[in-house]
Design a binder for these strands. Sequence first.
DNA 1: AGAACCGCCTGCTTGC
DNA 2: TGCAAGCAGGCGGTTC
Length: 257
Amino acid sequence: MPELPEVETLCRQLHAKIAGETILAQKAYDQKLYEIGDVSKRIVRRVRRRGKTILLDLDNGQSLVIHLRMSGRLFWHASKTKLPHTRWRLNFTSGHADLVDPRRFATVKLEKTDYENAGREVLTRFDERAFLLGQSKRKICVKTLMMDPKAIAGIGNIYACEILYDAGISPWRSSSTITRAEWKKIFHVSRCILEKAIEKRGTSISDWRDLYGHPGENQYELQVYSREGHICARCGDVIQRVKQGGRSTYYCAGCQK
DNA sequence: AGAACCGCCTGCTTGC
DNA sequence: TGCAAGCAGGCGGTTC
């Protein structure tokens, strides 16, 4: 599923492709997306990311707000290609961007919004002080907190597991027991891991592909996610998979205390 | 107020 | 082999 690095990859590719271009038309193939509104003749000023949300800022102050949720993908086609599960299409002179989404969770809205995610973007302008004051003492597991978009934007299951492994912190720890120094480490490790994943153009663990259908390469960097039963490279213990709030958590009990 | 749970969906995996 | 149940999970909304 697309998380921050995957969405960032799409945004960069999309920006390079359509910034300054005029939208010819949009078409929905799924009833859930019939009521988006008229964007024809609008120029895309820029494409940017907030958390896992993609924003296409238009020349009239509105933005197309796209969230891929679980199974959404964006593909660029110059020809008439239409993949199965194509739910929505944005047409340009040079081709079209298709939203392909088997499970139909993805959303597209047309809004007038500045959508700044104030202080919750972990890679840019992250407000550590506000986080430590307002979020860090919540009585939920640290992994659950890291995945809460109201606390930190853009971190999903894969990267939450990888970050906590790298930081050597157990996903079962209550947020309220994490020290200030440990939070600092979590923020630092988060930036390192997410930036590397962006460089690798995302994690193609199941079916993630970029705008042009190419897989990323970050799956080769994973230390714990999807590695149940493998040996921990750091301490030799066995990587475990456990259930946490209905989702799979992968971790090493040997070195995540 | 804050934490836990539910519902949206459908393709893939698992078990009988 | 075939079919049904189970599973996956971001996140907004609802319930506890």
